[in-house]
Design a protein around this nucleic acid. Structure first.
Length: 242
DNA sequence: GCGACAG
DNA sequence: ATCTTGTCGC
């Protein structure tokens, strides 16, 4: 199947794409032997006019950084809650293309299926790359959960519209829980296992943010990005919740 | 109708 | 995403 699609310029177009992709997300384990895990960090610079993505690849066995890349490009889609992937994914694909190897699993900054239309950035990225992916978010987009216990590994189901969409997971005592939701080709229990393993060495925001700390070092920047022209400011407050 | 809203 | 304030632990 070909999941390539035109890149939208409006949220209305983006909704159509999200709805066409949501049923292609696989929520069972389809991983090969996982040797390399990539933390993907997304964000922006220069008041939002530049989108950037950083990827740090770690060995699963000892969590050593073995590859990294960072990419920037003019922002081609505004940040609208529920549409983060349309702003960030092009830069992430740039960064992944700069790697010297292909990761076996992506830990993605943001939500997976814990999303109004079940297609957060981790799902979108997993589908476009066909790499198993996990959404690891620092705050909630949708859903609710009971209070999480204070021991590492404690978790509570994250429920949205009566569906289990992820977990709130305590990766360390005394810190905010992280919100884990499926991206693609992995089950929730397996995802939790990988997140807990990776957070034994780095706090998770750092497994993804580690990409930046490291990638910001000796500039491994890409040559030129002359693809997408910068776009106008977000059209006021858009609210296109489902 | 009002608030909430990944990064 | 960003900013600020307060508290604790090394």
């Amino acid at each position: 199947m070909n999941i390539n699609h035109e890149w939208p310029s409006t949220a209305e177009e983006a909704i159509v794409i999200q709805q066409s992709l949501r049923d292609q997300v696989i929520t069972t384990d389809q991983l090969d032997d996982v040797q390399y895990v990539a933390g993907v960090d997304v964000g922006f610079e220069a008041e939002g006019s530049i989108t950037r993505a950083a990827v740090a690849v770690l060995t699963l066995s000892d969590l050593q950084v073995c590859d990294r890349a960072i990419a920037r490009r003019p922002t081609s889609f505004p940040y609208i809650p529920g549409f983060l992937s349309f702003r960030e994914v092009p830069a992430v694909l740039d960064a992944i293309a700069l790697l010297t190897m292909t990761p076996d699993l992506l830990l993605c900054d943001g939500q997976g299926i814990a999303h109004p239309r079940r297609l957060g950035i981790a799902c979108h990225l997993g589908l476009l790359t066909n790499i198993p992916s996990i959404g690891v978010a620092k705050s909630l987009l949708v859903g609710r959960h009971a209070e999480v216990g204070n021991e590492k590994g404690d978790r509570q189901p994250l429920i949205h519209k009566g569906e289990l969409v992820g977990v709130a997971l305590r990766t360390r005592p005394k810190t905010k829980p992280l919100y884990i939701s499926l991206g693609h080709r992995i089950s929730l229990e397996t995802a939790i296992t990988y997140v807990l393993h990776c957070t034994t060495k780095y706090r998770l925001p750092e497994t993804t943010r580690h990409a930046h700390r490291l990638a910001s070092g000796p500039a491994i920047d890409q040559p030129e990005s002359s693809t997408t022209p910068a776009r106008d400011q977000p059209p006021e407050q858009m609210s296109l919740w489902s």
